[in-house]
């Protein structure tokens, strides 16, 4: 009974990933073989479509862009948000409370409500100051810091409240500066929240389509979702090529998942429970 139950559960879990099996299996098949059966394993596996998809999607360039944007954003968001949340929570003044309320309220605003005025605003910023936010990877990172701030501040503030002040007070008496206290004492204590923020932001930013679709205009700046979209727009009918392309886009996600599975599951659970 125990073995039967466990076997059924695992079989179901494997079948749950059946769509991914279909994609991967068909990415190695020739067109003719694909029409014969979509389910069968490839008779004569070929890497031809991978070479083609790599080239047509400009996959390595878009992977590099995605990694740059994701890594930079996921370092800067926790860095800036932890500093801000700690200082606001510890100072506890009216100004801090208003700011905190503003951060939290903003979590209810959908992207669609600010996307057009934001595009107008960054055009004006470009005209007035010459700073290019549109069509640069750095500009995209800047925007992700803004959109990631509310959730990160919210999570950090919740955690800072649970840390006893005694440690910080002792360090202050010993003559540490506030900067020293934060980086030497508080930041290491915030590590669980930092992991949560990083995991949630990686999942969100690596997969995000709409924001880069609005700001990254030139093909050389495309992130993976953008190159996938343009690839599908151009080659709608060549499904085996498309399957190879989709498999390529899933590989980084699988690598990320396998390398940090425990952190990811914990981070997602913590992010939801506190959010």
């Amino acid at each position: 009974m125990r073995y039967v139950g466990s076997g059924l559960m695992l079989l179901f879990a494997v079948l749950w990933l059946f769509p991914i099996y279909i994609v991967v299996v068909n990415s190695f098949k020739s067109r003719a073989e694909m029409y014969l059966s979509v389910l069968a394993l490839p008779q004569a596996p070929t890497l031809e479509y991978y070479a083609d998809a790599l080239r047509r999607m400009d996959f390595l360039v878009s992977l590099r862009n995605s990694l740059i944007v994701t890594v930079a954003s996921c370092l800067l968001i926790p860095f800036l948000a932890s500093m801000c949340a700690w200082m606001m929570t510890r100072s506890g003044g009216r100004f801090s409370r208003i700011l905190y309320g503003l951060f939290v309220a903003t979590m209810l605003i959908p992207f669609q409500t600010v996307m057009m005025p934001l595009m107008q605003e960054i055009t004006w910023i470009r005209q007035v100051t010459g700073i290019p936010i549109r069509n640069t990877l750095g500009g995209l990172v800047f925007l992700y810091i803004g959109f990631g701030a509310p959730m990160a501040v919210f999570l950090y503030s919740g955690f800072v409240k649970t840390i006893p002040m005694a440690l910080e007070e002792a360090a202050l008496i010993d003559g540490s500066s506030q900067g020293g206290i934060f980086f030497k004492i508080v930041l290491p204590l915030l590590k669980p929240t930092t992991m949560t923020v990083i995991i949630l932001d990686v999942i969100w930013i690596f997969n995000d389509y709409m924001l880069p679709a609005l700001t990254l205009l030139s093909p050389s700046n495309r992130t993976i979702p953008l190159s996938t979209f343009s690839f599908f727009g151009n080659f709608k009918v060549e499904w085996n090529l498309a399957m190879a392309g989709l498999t390529l886009t899933i590989i980084p996600v699988v690598v990320f998942y396998l390398s940090a599975q425990q952190y990811i599951v914990e981070g997602v659970a913590a992010g939801a429970v506190k959010g």
Partner: peptide, 10 residues
């Protein structure tokens, strides 16, 4: 950053 990206556009 938050003001530029969220509040002003809103």
């Amino acid at each position: 950053v938050f003001l530029v990206v969220n509040i002003i556009p809103f």
